[in-house]
Nucleic acid binder design. Structure first.
Length: 336
DNA sequence: GTAAGAGTCCCGGTGTTGTT
DNA sequence: AACAACACCGGGACTCTTAC
């Protein structure tokens, strides 16, 4: 059974309120490799969503801080399709999960359904005050709430591995006595994979900034980068390469060009530690965004380039070379 | 020094995606 | 449709840390 159909089956079993018009939740893009352990985890989710639903206002819920998703990062642009579907159907078909907070400032705390909460809250303040958040009430402790939120978040591609890693790192200390193995067993993921996510949080900001977006920084990169970062001389090279890549990303951003992809950033970072010289094999990009060659070496007095100009005009090639030569001249001046 | 527990790293199986 | 390449992640060996 595919992951998509399993989730669909679980969610289809939710009894809808008589007054609630069914609305399709914006589907999460499925990730590959749905394992048996994850099937078990979803079974748990499916059991929970069979409970009866209630209607409440987003203002009646506080957001549980243990969720990986950063509420402040949500905006109308990111949630446009969800907002549209809730509006079209008059509410959220897939219920959020809340728990009661006796003695708290608000009667409920939202455990899962952050995006739905944000979208309905936004609609309430933008001409649709009557739309309610449909939710189910669960009696959950923090650890159970964390596991439930994790099950849902694992299916979302708009949560970066870094966000997930930070969330896992906090959880291992808060709920599992600092023992990753215990947490891996409870979450039904391998200790290797959990270790990868948590290791990602040790990647320093200067490396993160080399990536176009934190979404490009994948958990598996931690295995390659962290050993290099622990090596003093390699770390210095990484820092220099990361600065260079970040500057190039910024240059491309300002010119509406395609960013350097995550795998390429990783490859260039790793390569920077295995070769001599300041800048080697940096890509040379034409005005239209095509890669036309690379900087082979940038040494004291010699700049070595390789070019595949294809069908570009001479002017286009010269334009692509201009920033490369200017940067080499700047470095040469600094070296003196 | 030794044993136990925990974390890291590497390899390989499996599923997905792209190409012909 | 068949094949190749790639991505993901689990299992287990290895290493490190801590307590005794």
């Amino acid at each position: 059974m595919s992951r998509r159909s399993l989730i669909g089956e679980a969610l289809a079993s939710v009894p809808s309120e008589p007054s609630a018009t069914p609305a399709p939740e914006t589907p999460a893009t499925p990730r590959p490799n749905f394992t048996n352990k994850r099937l078990e985890a979803f079974g748990e989710a499916a059991r929970i969503v069979k409970r009866p639903t209630i209607r409440l206002k987003p203002a009646e819920c506080s957001i549980w801080p243990g969720n990986a998703r950063d509420y402040s990062m949500l905006d109308e642009f990111r949630l446009r399709s969800l907002i549209d579907s809730i509006l079209a159907e008059g509410g959220n078909r897939v219920p959020a999960v809340v728990r009661r907070t006796p003695g708290g400032p608000l009667p409920y705390e939202l455990v899962t359904g952050t995006r739905r909460h944000w979208a309905i809250s936004w609609l309430n303040t933008n001409h649709y005050p009557d739309i309610d958040l449909i939710a189910i009430i669960e009696d959950l402790d923090d650890e159970a709430a964390f596991r439930l939120a994790d099950i849902e978040n694992r299916e979302r591609e708009d949560i970066s591995d870094l966000e997930r890693g930070l969330n896992y790192k906090a959880a291992v200390d808060s709920y599992y006595g600092g023992v990753q193995l215990r947490m891996a067993e409870r979450l039904k993921i391998s200790k290797s994979q959990l270790s990868r996510y948590i290791a990602l949080t040790e990647i320093p900001p200067f490396i993160v900034s080399a990536f176009h977006s934190p979404m490009d920084l994948q958990a598996k990169y931690a295995e390659k980068l962290l050993p290099l970062l622990r090596d003093g001389s390699a770390r210095a090279k990484l820092e220099a390469a990361a600065d260079q890549i970040a500057a190039e990303q910024s240059f491309r951003r300002s010119g509406d060009e395609q960013p350097i992809t995550g795998p390429e950033v990783l490859s260039r970072l790793v390569q920077s530690t295995t070769t001599k010289g300041r800048v080697q094999r940096a890509t040379i990009v034409a005005p239209r965004g095509d890669a036309i060659g690379q900087v082979e070496k940038d040494q004291q007095k010699v700049l070595t380039l390789s070019l595949s100009p294809s069908n570009l005009t001479v002017d286009e090639i010269l334009e692509a070379l201009r920033p490369v030569i200017e940067q080499a001249k700047m470095r040469s001046t600094r070296r003196r």
